[in-house]
Design a protein around this nucleic acid. Structure first.
Length: 291
DNA sequence: CCTTAGGCCTGCGCGC
DNA sequence: TGCGCGCAGGCCTAAG
């Protein structure tokens, strides 16, 4: 559950269980998840801090920490492919999911109640790390697609300035932060753009369409709490998101295009499975080839 | 600057 | 049923 809408959903769902609680302990069973430091070092950085606020930036969940009312660094969590955050009211019950726990934090509430934040991650690509300065750590990210900076004019100029293939550019988090494979495919379809077009050749009206497509796709996905494919990967509350039912092209190879009825094609662009309607998203003219 | 291949990991579904 | 293969929502690195 790893693109912007799924991360937004995750942050919203853990927020009420985390804000205001104090970290009383830390454990890690997969060291790479911590992204560098040893467990003891990580523990020393976070234990005793209070989680003041839970926010999202791009595909990162940010736990803002405080000590004695002053900022004391952040925990940055990236779910990558299979990461999940769950909060248990009762610490440490060993169920099926327990096997995939990589990091956990013991928590104490203002009223004294305890809980456990668990970072679960089947494939171990995700990260759960402490940083002193989250702004510095995330400085390379591009604008938020639902933020103020991301305007039609910004996108028109930004596309014009880049000589890159459209899909990998949209997946590049330093260009625009938060899109992944699913929402890029869905947005390009909605905008009528072929994923292999050159960014600088996208006409203004298509760029405007893309801007609208990205925002509406993400907003609708957030409304439906993201996309969930199988029974295992779910929101922290155990409920699947439902946006997958609204996919127009992603994962729909061979099924009819919702607009024209032609079968959806699957191709590989920049090593990523890519889904398009060849009629609604016409291919770019091959270089050197006329009419 | 850009692009591609490989690596990181595990589990699932498919065809044989 | 079992086995090998290809696939997966991400992203970093090295090399061309």
């Amino acid at each position: 559950m790893p693109e912007l809408p799924e991360v937004e959903t995750t942050a919203a769902l853990v927020r009420p269980h985390l804000e205001g609680r104090v970290i009383t302990g830390a454990r890690a069973s997969w060291l790479r998840s911590l992204g560098g430091p040893a467990v003891a070092e990580f523990e020393a950085s976070v234990v005793g801090s209070r989680i003041a606020e839970v926010t999202r930036r791009a595909k990162w969940v940010v736990l803002h920490l405080e000590r004695a009312g002053r900022p004391a660094g952040s925990i940055l969590c990236h779910l990558r492919m299979t990461g999940r955050l769950v909060v248990d009211a009762q610490p440490g019950h060993a169920d099926r999911e327990g096997a995939f726990e990589r990091v956990s934090l013991g928590l104490r509430g203002p009223a004294g109640g305890t809980a456990t934040l668990r970072f679960l991650d089947v494939r171990k690509f995700g990260r759960f790390r402490f940083v002193e300065d989250h702004l510095e750590a995330l400085a390379d990210l591009g604008p938020e697609p639902l933020g103020e900076e991301f305007t039609e004019e910004w996108l028109i100029r930004a596309l014009k300035a880049r000589k890159r293939v459209l899909k990998p550019l949209l997946l590049d988090q330093t260009f625009l932060a938060g899109l992944g494979n699913i929402y890029v495919d869905e947005s390009l379809f909605q905008a009528g753009l072929h994923p292999e077009r050159s960014a600088h050749q996208v006409p203004k009206d298509r760029a405007r369409a893309l801007h609208g497509a990205i925002q509406s796709t993400l907003r609708q996905a957030i409304e439906r709490e993201g996309s969930s494919f199988d029974a295992f990967y779910r929101t922290p509350e155990g409920q699947p998101g439902s946006y997958q039912h609204l996919f127009r092209v992603y994962g729909r190879e061979g099924k009819p295009c919702p607009t024209c009825g032609r079968p959806i094609k699957r191709l590989v662009v920049a090593q990523r499975g890519t889904h398009i309607c060849t009629r609604c998203q016409p291919a770019p003219r091959a270089p050197g080839k006329r009419r």
